[in-house]
Nucleic acid binder design. Structure first.
Length: 440
RNA sequence: CGGGCUGUAGCGCAGCCUGGUAGCGCGUUCGUCUGGGGGACGAGAGGUCGCGGGUUCGAACCCCGCCAGCCCGACCA
């Protein structure tokens, strides 16, 4: 992409409303614009990152055996009245009427709807286990939206739902998702620590939240530092036995948010030098809730004995749009964002220091073509601007690598290659720069 | 939803107290000089001063009402 043809409006000043780093940088780097409290438009570069995150989530859902569907944002109130949640869910749920006077709502979650979908077409345990998910916009009318996309009212979420014939099978499904989340977050460049959670308005009796550490996190977190060294964070587990063992290790160690924290237990279970007290951003939340929805909504299957039983369900959320902010919270410096490679909006930035110098522009165009051919997805800054602004903008948007070409170095056939994260700079022959980049 | 604050050009802000020609920096347009970390000079464009009402000869400014946004708290993926 050539910057001159890309809608990437950067800002030098920080809008007054942005308080935290991720919000500031997302506005300054031209990723989002706020429309009204807690509701944002995603501009091209922000959307690109959002899509990359969603694609990684999809990829990992597929690996875990889940099927993607797409349910609507707008729901009828009827199913919610059947489940009893229409009255139980507070004013956070946006309700309204259509022209016929039917009560509608903008879905804050989809348990009822997926249960209804399921029950129409699945009648036998032979079709189980089943895990269906979608990635869809949700709306929760938060009293006080803040922190940009980290706590908006409209947000993109992956929500998945598992269906099993009994509690034992359902718990295995839960554990599989638990482990798959570790891998998903790892690919996003994050260590998300699973913590024992309250089950909240979704309901149920087994629940974990996944939190990444960040100064600006909304929850206070307490955990045993030994957890983050567990091999389950870095290794892939294949057998059910390995998976269950990892689940047991991770869930038996102390890791709680302020909601469930018990100081006496923390003191008793965790040696002083392994105690971590910090803040975290919740990026995932999983629940096992048994037959809470299948019973009232009549979602039953025939079991092996020929008897109809309500399905055991779990639901599994990942805050996709929130992750964009969360990843920036965990990956930035004073100058801007520092993207993890896999979700960086472009693989490399190329700065043309002097666009009206024919040789310089030719060298940049050539390098741009090569980088494109190599699948690096480069962003070429071909704007007629002074160097200072270009450097500052490039740091702000945080691409992992930046190649700078200017007339001065070009006389010697040299370009500069800079690593955004480490700040290391090297003068490299233009002909070798992509090879050097590939070598790390 | 309690408490506090703010709405003036795309962004950041001054002006309001003490009513009288709407300003500054950045950005933006054109030109010239520039060109390795947000440059200089010159010339422009851009504003129903959040909305409605009131007071007044006259309101960005004073008064009343409303709306929106932000911060702290409670709440939340």
């Amino acid at each position: 992409m050539r910057w001159s043809r890309y809608f990437l409006p950067t800002m030098k000043d920080t809008p007054a409303e942005a308080q935290i780093a991720s919000h500031r940088f997302m506005l300054r780097a031209g990723m989002v614009r706020q429309n009204t409290a807690g509701i944002y438009t995603w501009l091209p570069m922000g959307l690109k990152v959002l899509s990359k995150i969603a694609d990684i989530v999809r990829d990992e859902q597929a690996r875990a055996g889940a099927n993607e569907v797409l349910m609507p944002t707008i729901q009828s109130a009827e199913l919610w009245q059947e489940s009893g949640r229409f009255d139980a869910y507070g004013p956070e749920m946006l309700r309204f009427e259509d022209r016929h006077g039917r009560t509608m709502l903008y879905g804050p979650t989809n348990e009822e709807m997926i249960t209804d979908i399921f029950k129409r077409d699945v009648q036998s345990y032979k079709n189980l286990p089943m895990n269906l998910y979608h990635i869809q916009w949700k709306f929760r009318d938060e009293v006080r939206p803040r922190f940009g996309v980290m706590r908006g009212r409209e947000f993109l979420m992956k929500d998945g739902y598992s269906f099993d014939v009994d509690k034992e099978a359902a718990e295995l499904a839960y554990k599989k998702v638990f482990i798959s989340y570790l891998r998903t977050f790892r690919r996003l460049g994050l260590t998300a620590i699973p913590m024992q959670a309250d089950t909240g308005p979704i309901g149920g009796d087994l629940s974990h939240e996944f939190l990444i550490q960040a100064e600006t996190g909304e929850s206070e977190v307490f955990f045993d530092s030994a957890i983050s060294g567990d091999p389950a964070f870095t290794e892939d587990l294949t057998s059910d036995a390995e998976l269950e063992a990892a689940f047991d290790r991770l869930t038996s160690a102390y890791a709680r948010t302020d909601e469930t924290h018990e100081a006496s237990l923390f003191d008793a279970e965790v040696p002083e030098d392994r105690k971590v007290v910090s803040r975290g951003v919740e990026v995932g939340h999983i629940f096992y809730f048994g037959t809470k929805y299948s019973e009232p909504l009549g979602a039953t299957v025939s079991n092996a004995g020929g008897k109809d039983v309500p399905v055991h369900m779990g639901s599994y959320g990942i805050g996709v749009s929130r992750l964009v902010g969360g990843i920036i919270e965990a990956n930035h410096d004073d100058d801007g964002i520092v993207w993890p490679a896999e979700i960086a909006p472009f693989g490399v930035g190329i700065i043309n220091l002097k666009v009206d110098d024919a040789a310089c522009s030719a060298a940049c165009d050539d390098l741009y073509a090569q980088a494109t051919a190599a699948g690096l997805d480069p962003l070429l800054d071909d704007r007629d601007m002074r160097p200072g602004g270009k450097f500052a903008d490039m740091e702000l948007i945080g691409l992992p690598w930046v190649i700078t070409i200017g007339p001065r170095g070009l006389k010697e056939g040299m370009a500069e290659l800079k690593n955004r994260r480490t700040g290391e700079k090297h003068d490299v022959a233009v002909a070798d720069v992509l090879g050097r980049l590939a070598a790390g």
